[in-house]
């Protein structure tokens, strides 16, 4: 397959959580963690998904990683519908790296046993599997001897390397990284990020990089998707988003990050309303938006193409 072809595509993907009343167990409301998400991810690129806590980024990752069943919609992987079941030959081709390296490894299993597990599912013999474990440990920059260690003997950064190795060991084509560095200290973060970039170069893997850290997103990604209330409100190339942020929410996010230059002024936009409401017939950002118009009260904005590879869900940019 050629570079730039679409490896993963979602069509109107939805994942709702039901909130039930205490006594009668009737559905009171939905939390629309992922709502009507349609994205295309090209082979070899890194798409960063950014957004605040509760915006649905992790749920999106879990649905794509087949850990949660979507409520509605479709996931196409290499043009095959994998929404509900993954064909046998695609086993291990989509993998997920978790945020918390401290609890992602079973404390009672040696590193080698943790790493070998995904291979055993694929009916790979033990001897061959152990050779692979050694190879992948080296790839993530750990000595082979760590195989016989227990997780508690490793530091956070080392554990995260093990977790990355466990994801890579099945030779995935698509890797979902769910805030892989947010639990690590800053010096370790950069090591892991550099490692992830070099692995990507070597193995030609497509990344979906979930993060709330815009600096990390800028370092890792080719494209950025901004999520708010389960929707992707703005998506586009990295330079498009960072140099020309359009959606008011994207601007808020960008302004929230202090500049490393101590002389520059920092004026973050702090919204007054912080609860997220899942409106169906008006813009979901309306409670926080300082630029809201009458139109925003009546309709939900849809994707508007502003320039090449830059879409935004906001009426400010509608032509009519």
């Amino acid at each position: 397959m050629d570079e730039g072809s679409i490896i993963l595509k979602t069509i109107n993907l939805r994942k709702y959580y039901e909130v039930r009343s205490k006594i009668l167990k009737r559905v009171k409301q939905f939390v629309k963690a992922v709502d009507d998400v349609t994205i295309e991810i090209k082979r070899g690129e890194t798409l960063a998904v950014v957004g605040e806590s509760g915006s649905g980024k992790t749920t999106l990752g879990m649905v794509l990683g087949k850990l949660l069943e979507p409520t509605d919609g479709k996931i196409l992987f290499k043009n095959l519908d994998i929404t509900y079941s993954l064909p046998k030959n695609l086993l291990g081709k989509i993998r997920l790296v978790f945020q918390d390296p401290y609890s992602a490894l079973n404390p009672r299993l040696k590193i080698v046993d943790s790493l070998i597990e995904p291979l055993q599912i694929m009916n790979i013999g033990r001897k061959e599997a152990i050779e692979k474990v050694a190879h992948y440990l080296q790839l993530v920059g750990l000595p082979e001897s760590y195989m016989s260690y227990y997780p508690h003997m490793l530091s956070g950064g080392q554990r995260q390397r093990v977790v990355v190795a466990r994801a890579l060991i099945t030779e995935p084509e698509f890797l979902i990284l769910d805030e892989p560095t947010s639990m690590l200290d800053v010096s370790t973060q950069s090591q892991i990020l550099r490692l992830l970039r070099s692995i990507k170069k070597e193995k030609q893997i497509t990344y979906l990089f979930i993060t709330h850290n815009l600096v990390v997103a800028r370092y890792m990604a080719n494209r950025i998707a901004v999520m708010y209330a389960g929707q992707i409100v703005e998506i586009g190339g990295k330079s498009n988003i960072f140099q020309n942020p359009l959606h008011p929410y994207t601007r808020t996010l960008l302004s929230a990050y202090p500049s490393p230059n101590p002389r520059s002024q920092w004026n973050p936009i702090i919204p007054e309303e912080l609860t997220v409401k899942y409106y169906e017939n008006k813009c979901r950002y309306i409670d926080r938006c300082s630029l809201k118009m009458q139109k925003c009260e009546k309709n939900m904005p849809t994707d508007i193409k502003v320039e090449e590879d830059h879409y935004v869900k906001c009426f400010l940019y509608a032509e009519t």
Binding site: L67, L91, F98, A104, L105, N106, P107, E117, I121, V163
Partner: peptide, 13 residues
């Protein structure tokens, strides 16, 4: 509730 159980599920166990 531990993440390693979710991780095992993710690995396809």
């Amino acid at each position: 509730e531990n993440l390693f159980v979710t991780a095992a599920r993710e690995a396809g166990l």
